[in-house]
Design a binder for these strands. Structure first.
Lengths: 166, 166
DNA sequence: TATCGATATCTTACCAGTAAGAGACATGAG
DNA sequence: CTCATGTCTCTTACTGGTAAGATATCGATA
């Protein structure tokens, strides 16, 4: 008994035996897993009054280290969404007192987005729990298989040019 | 030199050495890859006047076999989007003459969504090219590594309950 | 056969994100 | 010093999807 993608592949082999559809076994699974994992992670953060997009910004700022601030442009590069989406996220998060906009002393085009004390506290309280939740989602893989999986995924990401966040 | 996720993990190890963040190496990569692959595949279909959501419906109907029709409910289960989204997709695709709604003879609650001749032609013309494009996206992996990757992803999907499309 | 819960599709109000570009500011070449 | 070009953030109009529920129909049971 396979997974949902095995069913898709069986159907294609019946309908289009002339095409070797092996890439579907990788691409289709990555897409389905991404959706399932995103839903699970969203459920986790929602229990604490956050959503995925807010958690994305909070974690990006937190792991950047003291003083926990980045420009909107840096957040765009780290996030895989457009600048318009980042502006809106920041607007929402300012009203929730998770981040604040502080003017840049040197370059007046630039704004710095800084974690508030509340934002810092929120993500620090949640981070270990969030990682524990991701560990639970991956518990079907032992550590060796997980490492092998991560290696193969890294190879793909590098080949697609995903080598930097800045 | 690693990928973008290696940079994220290095940052976390510096900022939160108390947390073992190994799951990020899998979850983060699946999420980034899903976005990158989706963008690439969207670019591919856009060259032929389609978008991802339309291609999703066309492929689902095509691989279901003669007479190339499914109910909206079956499309919902195959697609990972809500029924409202499927209704809208069908509306758009009807105006583009890719599918048609045909009443079900037996159950009048049910509608059958059927590929038109144009829809059938469109997906049949594109399918082999689409698979060739996916093959290109995965060319960094040889066939053995791709099989191993697919196996690990299948294990995860099954553990998360993703075993059927119906 | 009348009724009631289950099922199937569609509707409505809303929202996050996108694409394109506007506006403000910086900077280097001449 | 000036101006043209580049950079940075934000705005606007739009779109695809969601959540919740309305509407219509089916089917089992008393």
């Amino acid at each position: 008994m396979g997974d949902a993608v095995d069913a898709v592949m069986d159907a294609w082999r019946r309908e289009r035996p002339d095409v070797d559809i092996w890439p579907v076994g990788v691409v289709g699974r990555i897409q389905r897993l991404a959706r399932l994992l995103e839903t699970e992670i969203q459920d986790f953060f929602r229990r604490y009054g956050l959503d995925n997009s807010e958690a994305d910004v909070l974690t990006t700022l937190r792991r950047s280290g003291e003083p926990y601030e980045l420009t909107p442009g840096q957040l765009v590069k780290a996030s895989m969404v457009t600048s318009g989406a980042i502006t809106k996220r920041i607007d929402r998060m300012v009203t929730k007192n998770l981040v604040e906009r502080v003017p840049d002393a040197v370059d007046r085009r630039t704004v710095r987005i800084r974690l508030t004390a509340h934002g810092r506290q929120t993500i620090d309280d949640l981070f270990a729990l969030h990682i524990a939740n991701e560990t639970r989602l991956l518990q079907a893989l032992d550590r060796d298989r997980a490492d092998g999986l991560a290696d193969a995924l890294r190879t793909l990401l590098q080949s697609l040019g995903d080598t930097s966040l800045t």
